[in-house]
């Protein structure tokens, strides 16, 4: 309390951080950064070749969007991401459910799985490139792997931690095993499963970029960035960064909207931005 009062005393009222309305507080830092970026060139604070004005990035964006170059790269990246995400999530759900439902499978597969998940994702790249080459197939395999692990772990956790109290209610009402799974286990595990799928979405997008950096063939946003760096096209690099960030933001936003609908019964949300 005291520190707050002191701060309020020293700062002019309108400069106090709390002067910004709550819903807009998240925008304070982006706006400050953009202003700083704009001012850097407006007032000539740098002449470095490693940095370009905001306006040049926008021009490049308009040019590449007009020529279809941007859409082509983004489309290629998103196509791989969606495919890898869907494959990894589907297999992950199946394996996670199997591990959660069957103690035999857990004993059989669990130890191997828990060892493999300790291997850094990028350590698989050499193996994947040897087996699948450098093209789409290799990238999609890598992305599937990235999406697979969080889904398995969270599905397994969710199914394992179904409250006993709920299972007893199911027994009192004489549910058969399928009813127990469909009416109790699955819905109770859903928040955890959603967390897994949500992580898979984020990992898949990160891994898309990773795959494009490390398996450099074909087109994609990652290749756009690599190209930009090699040719010292800073505008293209920065444009790539902005697009990657924007896609991540949209994915995150969609996930939280979906969660809000699917898991309305919880009255709160995990996916946030």
């Amino acid at each position: 309390m005291t520190s707050r009062q002191q701060t309020a005393g020293r700062w002019p009222h309108w400069l106090h951080p709390a002067a910004v309305p709550k819903p807009l507080r998240g925008w304070v830092i982006p706006v400050l950064l953009l202003t700083l970026w704009w001012a850097t060139f407006r007032f000539g604070w740098t002449s470095s070749q490693l940095f370009v004005p905001l306006s040049k990035v926008i021009d490049t964006g308009v040019r590449m969007a007009g020529s279809g170059e941007l859409a082509h790269a983004l489309g290629a990246s998103l196509y791989r991401m969606v495919l890898g995400f869907v494959i990894g999530t589907a297999v992950g759900l199946a394996v996670g459910t199997a591990l959660g439902v069957s103690r035999l499978l857990e004993n059989l597969i669990g130890p191997t799985f828990h060892t493999l998940k300790q291997v850094s994702l990028f350590a698989w790249i050499p193996l994947i490139s040897l087996w699948f080459g450098l093209g789409d197939l290799a990238k999609i395999a890598f992305l599937s792997l990235a999406a697979f692990f969080p889904v398995v772990l969270n599905t397994f956790e969710g199914i394992r931690s179904v409250p006993r109290a709920h299972l007893e209610v199911a027994r009192v009402f004489a549910f058969n095993p399928w009813q127990v799974f469909a009416r109790v286990v699955w819905p109770a595990a859903l928040p955890s499963i959603f967390t897994g799928v949500y992580l898979a979405l984020i990992y898949a997008w990160l891994a898309t970029l990773g795959a494009e950096y490390l398996l450099t063939s074909g087109s994609g946003i990652g290749n756009l960035l690599v190209d930009g760096r090699e040719h010292f096209w800073m505008d293209q690099v920065l444009l790539g960064v902005l697009v990657v960030g924007a896609v991540g933001f949209v994915l995150n936003w969609s996930a939280s909207q979906l969660e809000r609908r699917l898991l309305a019964w919880r009255g709160h949300s995990t996916a946030q931005f």
Partner: peptide, 9 residues
């Protein structure tokens, strides 16, 4: 039961 044990979903 002592706790209501309703299914929250």
């Amino acid at each position: 039961f002592q706790e209501h044990r309703l299914f929250p979903w």
